[in-house]
């Protein structure tokens, strides 16, 4: 049983201290900043300010809007893609796999820079239309690029899960006269449900933490009319650009709380917490 508890304990200790310090910062408020000689006193000042902070709620709206849009499309697209991959010949498979993996493997900064070159008007000299400076397009651009980056790897994850499905199930479905779509619905989906749910949850959480992409695309600003201001970007600006670590911690905590509500709801609805045994 030691073997079981060892990883749990390891994980726990490593993650605890930084989180505790972050919590403490959020609840504290004192004269001066983190290197003030005065002792910190616990207070809810930071949170009170946050409630009326227009920028925070703008960031929250942007972020959750983005996360919602991405999560609506990410898993379904990946599922369909993974299902289609089953019928690809094994000779071609490695190349397909590389292609799908590469969009994720190259890293967020590189993707951002690449798209910058494509979308930036200085390259396409004929256009006087700068899509990056139009606030209506921000969400669309960010979503598209994120989906482009993540659907591939998600599909591969799902494909790994699909491989463990007993082929006999597919055979019996085919014998019963089920078409491809119905096979997908009744055989594939239930079996990969667990993995799909984890991926979905991780996708929502990762989307909520969007930072690198808008950071690079909009040159470290909040974009046109602040439409590219995500929560983590606001966190970064407050913490690093302004040096207000306490308020930054408070922002992080409220953000995590909001996400927690979403996550808990998701876990319950999807039944992720049950040990699934066949």
């Amino acid at each position: 049983m030691l073997f079981v508890f060892l990883p749990v304990v390891l994980f726990g200790t490593v993650l605890v201290y930084p989180m505790l310090r972050g919590t403490f910062l959020a609840f504290s408020s004192a004269h001066g900043e983190s290197f003030s000689p005065n002792p910190d006193r616990l207070s809810l000042n930071n949170f009170r300010f946050l409630l009326s902070d227009r920028l925070f709620w703008l960031a929250a709206a942007n972020t959750f809007g983005f996360a919602l849009l991405v999560s609506l499309f990410q898993i379904p697209l990946a599922l369909i893609l993974a299902f289609m991959l089953r019928s690809i010949r094994s000779a071609v498979m490695p190349f397909v796999r590389i292609a799908l993996l590469s969009t994720h493997l190259v890293g967020g900064v590189f993707v951002g820079l690449m798209f910058l070159q494509i979308v930036s008007p200085s390259v396409r000299s004929a256009a006087s239309f700068d899509v990056l400076s139009d606030p209506r397009f921000t969400l669309l651009i960010l979503c598209t690029i994120t989906l482009w980056t993540t659907v591939g790897i998600t599909a591969l994850h799902l494909q790994s899960a699909m491989r463990s499905i007993d082929p006999a199930l597919y055979d019996s479905a085919r014998i019963d006269g089920a078409s491809g779509t119905r096979q997908f619905w009744h055989v594939t989906l239930p079996a990969v449900r667990g993995t799909a749910c984890v991926l979905w949850l991780a996708g929502i959480i990762a989307s909520a933490q969007l930072f690198e992409l808008p950071f690079v695309l909009y040159s470290q600003t909040a974009g046109p009319r602040g439409s590219a201001l995500t929560l983590v970007m606001y966190l970064f600006q407050t913490g690093f650009a302004s040096g207000d670590l306490r308020y930054a911690a408070a922002i992080a905590w409220v953000m995590m709380l909001l996400l927690l509500v979403v996550s808990v709801a998701f876990v319950r609805v999807s039944g992720l917490a049950r040990t699934q045994t066949n």
Binding site: L15, Y17, P18, M19, L20, R21, G22, L25, A202, I205, A208, Q209, F211, L231, V232, L235, F236, G239, F240, L245, A248, A249, A252, M255, M256, L259, L260, S263
Partner: peptide
């Protein structure tokens, strides 16, 4: 829950 925590928050600690 730990997945929710943005890395930027954990960095100082």
């Amino acid at each position: 829950f730990t997945m929710l925590v943005p890395a930027q928050l954990l960095m100082p600690g």
